[in-house]
Simulated assay, not measured.
Amino acid sequence: MDELTLLRRTRDDSREPSPEALTAGRAALLGRIADDGATDTTVRQRKKRRWMPRLTWAVAGTAAALTGVLVVGNVTMSARSAYASEMLRTAATQTIHYADLVPGSDQYLRSRTHARWGICNDTVCEPNDQILDVYMPADPEAEWVLYRDWGSIPGVLTGESIETARAVDGHFYDPEHSWVNVDYADIPLDGAAAYEWIDSQYSGGSASRDEDNFVRITDILRSGLVPASQRAALLDALSRIPGVTATDNVANLDGVTGVAIGRNEMLRAGQRQEVIIDPDTGLVTGERAMSGATFFGWGPNEEMSLTAIETTVVDTAP
């Protein structure tokens, strides 16, 4: 007897499967056939499809977090800039009402700068204190006097640590340029016009146009000799430079506090230049430079230089 005949005989034909059993068996068989016929690529695609939603949500979460950081940063910077603009324009309004110090016929308007600047070599900078006294006579066309204590470095004119120079209209070092390097009468008395006046003189210097405008305005203001009306216009002009912010209660080198007006220059690794002003008079009482990154021994956000500026009327000059 062959095996096929034996198998048939052992089958019980009297017991037929139910329709439900047939349906369940057919479904199981088709499912197994589908799984056995699936290629590795198909399996990977299925796994990939299962992970895709998770990956998509993860990427979306990271993007949302980065967007949130940028949005918060932009909002914070906008708020700081708005505060600085409001403060500067308020200071400009106050300055117009300030009674300037006016020297008599035999007196001088003296601007004293006590500065702590760095002496740098190839690897490091060390602080060096200097004193600069500029004496402007009642008649600006008359002879001005500069007294300068260079501290631990030799002076430019004599090679000595102490220098005294005299020159008509403040042309101490260059017959073409005065100490203040501007005729105050040329400064427009309207803030917007003063900004346009400064911006129109841009010739490609500094790391950016905004930095150059900021530096040229603050160079004029830090002389300590600018009349109130022009000073007010320049403060208003500062408020129009993008990125300018304000920091309250900043002390100058002599410990006098004021509001620091500055901006971070991204093209200089975030280095920040500031002038410290008295918001009631608009006078610059000092300057400060803050590092943006590690530089010549300074860490991030460290003080690189600091000055104190004071304007008074005196009877004599050296």
Rank of each mutant, 00 (worst) to 15 (best):
H114W: 06
A138K: 02
G170Y: 08
S105T: 15
V71F: 15
Q94E: 15
T95W: 02
I96P: 04
I131Y: 11
P140M: 06
W117D: 13
E143D: 10
A64W: 02
V69Q: 12
L66M: 14
Y135T: 07
Y184V: 02
I153P: 01
A99H: 13
S161Y: 09
T158H: 07
N128M: 02
N121E: 01
S161K: 12
T93I: 06
V145E: 08
A92I: 03
V75S: 01
S78H: 15
V72C: 06
A79W: 12
Y83I: 01
F172Y: 10
R112L: 02
E141L: 14
W150P: 01
I162Q: 14
S178Y: 02
I153R: 12
L146Q: 05
A142D: 14
N74V: 03
W150L: 12
D169I: 01
A92F: 00
R116D: 11
D186G: 05
N181C: 07
S105P: 13
H171A: 10
V134F: 02
A99F: 07
S111N: 08
A99R: 14
A92M: 10
T90V: 10
R110H: 11
E176T: 12
A91E: 06
D169Q: 14
E176V: 03
C120Y: 09
T164N: 07
T95D: 09
I187T: 00
V134N: 01
S85G: 12
A65M: 12
I187C: 08
D122G: 08
E86S: 14
G159A: 07
G104K: 10
G155D: 00
G191L: 05
I119Q: 05
V168P: 08
P188N: 06
P188E: 11
L109Q: 06
R116M: 12
S152A: 14
G104M: 00
T95K: 01
A138L: 08
P188L: 09
P175I: 08
L66A: 13
I162L: 14
A64P: 07
T113Y: 06
A165Y: 06
T76N: 13
I187W: 09
S111R: 01
V145S: 13
M136P: 02
D186M: 02
Y135N: 02
L88Y: 05
A99V: 14
P175F: 00
I162Y: 05
A115Q: 11
C125R: 00
S81P: 03
V71P: 03
R80I: 03
E86H: 13
A92N: 09
H171P: 06
T67D: 04
G159S: 06
M136Y: 05
E143W: 04
V102G: 08
T93A: 15
E141G: 13
I96E: 15
